[in-house]
């Protein structure tokens, strides 16, 4: 795949070198490289991450590579390069990637967005001096985030398990074809020879841009592996849904969890000294029912739950007697 893309390149050595560095650095850099489209995160960890043991080892391996190679290089880059240059470099590669964004806009049927992104590419490539300046943003054309993994998700391709590939970093199985397409659609994949430094710079830029991210994970995560996995899967899911569907899913997951608490209350009721309908429970039920008058949904649900539990407690009591 790579070698056919890069056939024009004169030096095989360069290809090998480039690939190994590119793959390694982007993998380490990103923690976000490829793809997914999870349903719910956290709750179904075993379904999502069946290869956790392997993944953890890969993750640890990538961490070591990053700590000893990618991070020191990125630190030097960030230290010696003025902020304005960093932004320019970042804009330049982002602009080249715009071609891929447009292709995926179209493949997902987002034609209006596709025309906006085409506009972005034209404006930034010309007035923006080859993409160094994001002039289009100033004109009100916001950047969009699209890639082939998202397109596959939109087309209904299942996400597949979460994987941490040595050197490459986090992805899901759907992200493999997704990532390969993205590489093929990026012009920098086709330059070689004297442009080799451009490819190196792209890799460096990617790692440097992720620096704050990675430091933040180090700082905030109790378990960096899980933190990275969850953030990656949730974030990708949000991208696929263009930020629209996510909340509902979260609410369901969380509220299910909240309802466990009600079960605890019920458990307590069941564990009370006797199984009979005592005064305290009755008062609780009356209070909960009073809540219905105020159209408080919580109180209503609580009342229903109490009713059911108390009824079963009563029956239980009768049976025991």
């Amino acid at each position: 795949m790579f070698s056919t893309q890069l056939k024009k390149d004169n030096s095989t050595l360069f290809i090998v070198l480039f690939l190994s560095i590119f793959l390694f650095l982007t993998g380490c850099a990103s923690h976000t490289v490829l793809e997914t489209g999870v349903k719910s995160v956290g709750i179904h960890a075993q379904e999502i991450d069946p290869y956790e043991n392997f993944n953890r080892k890969s993750y640890a391996f990538n961490e070591v590579l990053d700590n000893y190679v990618a991070e020191p290089i990125a630190d030097v880059y960030l230290w010696i390069t003025p902020k304005v240059v960093q932004t320019g470099v970042s804009n330049f590669f982002s602009n080249l990637n715009e071609i891929n964004v447009v292709l995926n806009d179209i493949m997902q049927g987002k034609l209006l967005q596709g025309s906006e992104d085409t506009g972005r590419f034209i404006v930034n490539s010309t007035i923006g001096l080859g993409g160094l300046f994001d002039v289009a943003k100033e004109l009100g054309l916001e950047k969009h985030d699209e890639d082939f993994s998202q397109t596959l998700a939109v087309w209904g391709v299942p996400q597949g398990p979460y994987l941490v590939i040595p050197v490459l970093g986090p992805m899901t199985t759907r992200g493999i074809p997704g990532g390969l397409f993205d590489i093929a659609a990026n012009p920098t994949s086709y330059v070689g020879g004297i442009f080799f430094p451009v490819q190196l710079l792209q890799v460096l830029n990617a790692r440097a841009s992720a620096d704050g991210d990675l430091r933040f994970i180090d700082e905030a995560a109790l378990d960096p592996y899980i933190f990275t996995r969850e953030a990656f899967l949730q974030y990708r899911k949000n991208l696929i849904a263009d930020g629209n569907v996510e909340i509902e899913d979260n609410i369901f997951d969380l509220e299910d969890e909240l309802f466990d608490e009600d079960e605890e209350i019920s458990d307590k009721l069941n564990n009370m000294n006797n199984n009979k309908f005592n005064e305290q429970e009755e008062r609780q039920l009356q209070q909960a029912e009073a809540g219905i008058v105020e159209a408080d949904l919580d109180a209503k649900i609580e009342a229903l739950r109490l009713k059911i539990k108390l009824r079963s407690a009563n029956q239980h009591g009768v049976n025991n007697n």
Partner: peptide, 22 residues
């Protein structure tokens, strides 16, 4: 407030995964 969701990343879900795993 019981949760904050930033760009689709839920703090509660993230912490829950970490804590239960640990």
């Amino acid at each position: 407030i019981i949760n904050v969701i930033a760009n689709g990343v839920s703090d509660l879900a993230l912490k829950r995964s970490e804590y239960t795993s640990i």
